[in-house]
Design a protein around this nucleic acid. Structure first.
Length: 685
DNA sequence: CTAGGGTTAG
């Protein structure tokens, strides 16, 4: 079911009908109220008819009502939301021309406009301007700026302003302490948080709900059990009652600490004992499971909640939506989003961003585009995160021109590109072989004062490795120390993979040793890279040895390991393949779409394209979700069958063997598609 | 809520 979107045509008609009504009022000598004018301004700004806004203002001067601060604030706010913060700022002078003095709200709108776009220095410029114009900044003003610096992780600046306001005789409020403590938590500076809390209490400021949430969540996340208990004691001493029960808090605490199983157990235990729980406890669990990509568990928690008659809230739905998006169940996710809108839940930019990312990750570019346009149609202004997700998705899809356009659009709307944005674009350029462009962007980000981070460097090293330019990759690796970056496990794995790609197993080993020397133990990815390296150099026994190795050192093999080994199995001589298969099957691996793809492609490669199509058919009968690669493989098989290209015929034994591997995989998916059928749309009554 | 390494395809 799709939600109703007001069509632009209808909307325009409405706006101009409203203007006609205004004219008629004027004709009969009725002066409209200021608030009526505000509504008209809002409508005109929404459709972008700035000419009429101007005309309306002049009409007000001639015939009243006199424009008030509020009228202007609405106009400035709109420009800020659309990204024209500069224009908003220039409207300050227009205001003064209409003999309106900008008030603290006006300035706060502008400051907030700059801050949400990461333009903290512009924001500080407005603060100075307001002081110069004789308007005293309020605590809110400073809070906006402190929050912006905290979000950027720039705690020194945040702190400086915090100290500064005290010098001018202002006393920080609870919100300000909350903001600062939140920032220090993000910077992992728990001690600083504790000091601030002490200070706040000594000043006689009482913690509020946000203080509690920030501190409790932070202490749980950092495993500071003592701190969280001390907080609870302190609050109960103050007579502070959190807006949920202690049981809810316990569940939330376990979730924040990442102890999800325990949280769910506790929940079920409470319910069994007949202790009532609120939506909050369930929301914590559902959110945590969804974030971890464990959508099945999230859904189970939701069902328990519904069974006990609890009505899902906006955040329940957002969390379920996150889980669905992460699992590629996009129709359901979009349906849920529309349902949320119909239920009147506030429009949720985060939910849109999550879904957008989901479409891209599933390779559904059309879906992503349609959602992006729907956002626009609904008047949701993408923020820096939404833009970054959009740019990243387009880059990964190889649509670099469009990604770059979005990047320009983002700066036009006043956002300062951050490392997320640049890294996504740089990755995109590397991916399609335009290393030169990638390096140009890296220079550009440095010129803009952004520091290339470990992500940037790893992306660039990977770019060189992909092209087999190991010398250049090593140069970047050597240079990263100079700019103060330490290689991490991804750096080493990337370089080891690079050597494997050029079949230089000696070079790979050399880097493996370097990795050990700098204190990193190989992880499952390192082993997978090695196994694939041995596979591509046809060193089957070495690949098997690696598998034994990784298990011996206690690393858990995953689906990628299984798939890579399956590749070995498919190309190996039959006797050895069967022994290896027996070994693999004992490990109870979970196949995925890549497993299916590689088996389908082996049929094709080994002269049995009709089997590719046959199994493809069988899989689609159980509504298996294929991806882009699956379709490419089947398309290729189809062409082969059509052209009757069949020079080599596989031995019937090998054919039977591949069939049995495919059957095992097919059977797995058949079983989960019949057991896992769930209906998870929340129903609110 | 957004960025990096490993499996299929090319």
């Amino acid at each position: 079911m799709s939600a109703k979107v007001l069509r632009l045509g209808d909307f325009l008609k409405m706006v101009y009908e409203a203007l006609e009504i205004l004219d008629r009022m004027r004709e009969v000598g009725v002066t409209p109220s200021s608030s009526a004018m505000t509504i008209l301004f809002r409508l005109l700004l929404r459709v972008g008819d700035y000419g009429s806004v101007w005309k309306l203002l002049r009409g007000m001067i001639r015939e009243g009502p006199r424009p008030c601060n509020f009228n202007f604030n609405v106009i400035i706010l709109c420009f800020c939301q659309k990204g024209y913060v500069r224009i908003g700022e220039s409207l300050l002078y227009v205001m003064q021309k209409f003999s309106c003095q900008p008030d603290v709200y006006t300035y706060n709108i502008l400051i907030s406009g700059y801050c949400t776009r990461g333009r903290t220095s512009d924001a500080l410029g407005v603060v100075h301007l307001m002081i110069k114009n004789g308007c005293k900044p309020s605590l809110v003003t400073f809070n906006i700026v402190i929050n912006a610096f905290s979000k950027q992780g720039n705690m020194e600046e945040a702190r400086k302003i915090f100290e500064g306001i005290q010098e001018v005789g202002l006393s920080p409020n609870v919100e300000m302490y909350n903001t600062l403590m939140n920032g220090y938590f993000k910077a992992s500076d728990v001690d600083q948080v504790n000091i601030l809390y002490e200070e706040m209490r000594n000043r006689g400021l009482a913690p509020d709900g946000s203080t509690f949430n920030i501190l409790f969540a932070g202490h749980c996340k950092y495993g500071r059990e003592e701190d969280s208990h001390r907080l609870l004691r302190d609050l109960s001493y103050l007579g502070f009652l959190p807006d949920c029960s202690l049981y809810d808090i316990t569940v939330a605490g376990l979730c924040w600490a990442g102890r999800l199983g325990e949280a769910m157990e506790f929940l079920e235990d409470m319910l069994e004992k007949g202790i009532p729980l609120s939506v909050i406890a369930f929301n914590s669990v559902i959110a945590a499971y969804s974030r971890a990509g464990l959508e099945e568990n999230a859904n189970r928690a939701y069902k328990v909640m519904a069974m006990f008659g609890l009505v899902p809230s906006s955040s329940t739905c957002s969390s379920l939506l996150l889980g669905l998006s992460k699992n590629g169940r996009l129709q359901e996710a979009r349906g849920l989003l529309h349902m949320m809108i119909e239920k009147g839940f506030p429009i949720n930019k985060v939910a849109f961003t999550v879904l957008l990312d989901g479409y891209f990750k599933a390779g559904d570019i059309t879906g992503a585009h349609s959602l992006w346009h729907e956002m626009e149609a609904r008047g949701i202004y993408p923020d820096a995160v939404a833009f970054s997700a959009f740019i990243d998705g387009l880059s990964k899809a190889g649509l670099l021109e469009e990604a770059y356009d979005a990047f320009l659009d983002m700066s036009r709307k006043g956002f300062v590109a951050n490392n997320f944005t640049y890294n996504s674009l740089i990755h995109g350029f590397c991916k399609c072989g335009k290393l030169h462009e990638a390096l140009k962007l890296e220079r550009e980000m440095r010129q803009k004062g952004l520091l290339p981070d470990i992500f940037t460097i790893n992306i660039i090293i990977n770019g060189f490795c992909k092209e087999g330019r190991m010398k250049a990759a090593i140069d970047v690796f050597t240079d990263m120390h100079r700019i103060g970056l330490t290689p991490d496990i991804v750096t080493y794995n990337t370089l080891i993979g690079g050597y494997c790609k050029v079949f230089d197993m000696v070079g790979a080993d050399e880097f493996l040793n370097k990795m050990y020397a700098s204190g990193w133990d190989p992880d499952i990815t390192s082993y997978n890279i090695y196994i694939h390296g041995f596979y591509s150099t046809r060193k089957t026994s070495q690949a098997v040895m690696m598998l034994d190795n990784l298990i011996a050192v206690g690393v858990f093999p995953d689906t990628v390991t299984y798939n890579t080994m399956l590749n070995v199995v498919c190309t190996d001589i039959l006797d050895r393949a069967m022994i290896l298969t027996a070994k693999l099957l004992k490990m109870a691996f979970v196949p995925n779409v890549v497993t299916t793809n590689l088996l389908l492609s082996h049929f094709c490669k080994q002269g049995m394209p009709e089997k590719t199509l046959l199994w493809g058919q069988k899989l689609s009968e159980i509504s298996f979700t294929f991806d882009k690669v699956s379709y490419k493989i089947m398309e290729k098989a189809y062409i082969k069958v059509q052209n009757k290209v069949k020079p080599l015929r596989a031995t019937s034994a090998k054919s039977l063997f591949l069939d049995s591997l495919m059957y095992i995989t097919y059977d797995y998916f058949r079983r989960i598609s019949t057991n896992g059928k769930t209906s998870q749309d929340p129903q609110t009554n």
